[in-house]
């Protein structure tokens, strides 16, 4: 029987959410439509309309040596063109942001090609050829993995994921790259990823209601879904620890487990 990917164990809402985000056959909901030029402005790597800077000639020019890997792997568009590798980095609040850093990595692995990613407690970076990065960034800002109040787009000085929320429910950002617009009820970016001022504010929409976030979130918390209340997630995690403890990385050598 062919192996069927299971993505994630558990029957709790958090487990189901994790599984759904990771399963590439599940289409993620688009909640907003931030203009591509505005995404480019927030990223801050180039001005809208500006040519992509390149770091090598287009692959079509054939200057690359013969190589088996080159035959096996179809290059993404930016690689074909010779684009620079640039980044987008997200910070996810512990207060029920849709995403948690590890899930970003796992989700990217199942849904995106041609990137490098790094995960820390307070930020999660994607590095990618520039034109491909812009498309991915727009998707990740437009879809349900992003909440204007609980998700931040930050290149540096990223901390804030564990800070309390401000009076408008926004995650702390020492650079105040975004602000609450009381008139529109929306969050707008006034600085790019590395806190350089934008020419005009860019709205990323209204924050999601807390009830919705608690339903969509991927963090286990005692005041939401406690991980201990999902027996399968607990069991799998304990099994990993048990197997590593008893037999290192030779899990197959352990009898009776």
């Amino acid at each position: 029987m062919a192996y069927k990917r299971q993505f994630y164990p558990g029957e709790s809402q958090v487990a189901k959410n994790r599984r759904r985000y990771m399963d590439p056959s599940e289409k993620l909901k688009k909640l907003r439509d931030v203009a591509m030029d505005d995404v480019i402005r927030i990223l801050g790597h180039r001005a809208p309309g500006e040519d992509y800077k390149s770091i090598h000639p287009p692959l079509a020019e054939g200057s690359e040596p013969e190589d088996l890997i080159r035959q096996l792997v179809t290059p993404i568009e930016g690689a074909k063109a010779g684009d620079r590798i640039r980044y987008v980095q997200f910070t996810d609040s512990v207060y029920f942001a849709p995403m948690v850093p590890y899930l970003r990595a796992w989700m990217y692995m199942t849904r995106i090609r041609g990137f490098d990613t790094g995960t820390l407690s307070g930020r999660q970076i994607i590095e990618m050829r520039e034109r491909d990065l812009e498309k991915v960034s727009k998707e990740l800002i437009d879809n349900e993995t992003f909440d204007p109040a609980k998700t931040g787009i930050r290149g540096a000085t990223v901390h804030g994921h564990a800070c309390r929320l401000d009076e408008n429910g926004l995650m702390f950002d020492a650079w105040q790259r975004y602000r609450w617009n009381a008139k529109t009820g929306e969050v707008e970016y006034v600085k790019d990823q590395v806190a350089l001022p934008l020419d005009k504010p860019i709205s990323v929409g209204k924050p999601l209601p807390e009830a919705d976030l608690k339903n969509m979130t991927t963090i286990f918390r005692a005041d939401g879904v406690d991980m201990r209340d999902d027996p399968e997630v607990m069991a799998i995690n304990l099994r990993i620890h048990r197997l590593r403890t008893l037999c290192g990385y030779q899990a197959y050598a352990l009898k009776g487990e």
Binding site: P101, L103, L120, H161, F220, M227
Partner: peptide, 18 residues
Amino acid sequence: WYLSMLQHKERHGRLGFY
């Protein structure tokens, strides 16, 4: 210690630096 690390990463979906 290591049990804690595995559970913490699973629970919060984040841990520490690399």
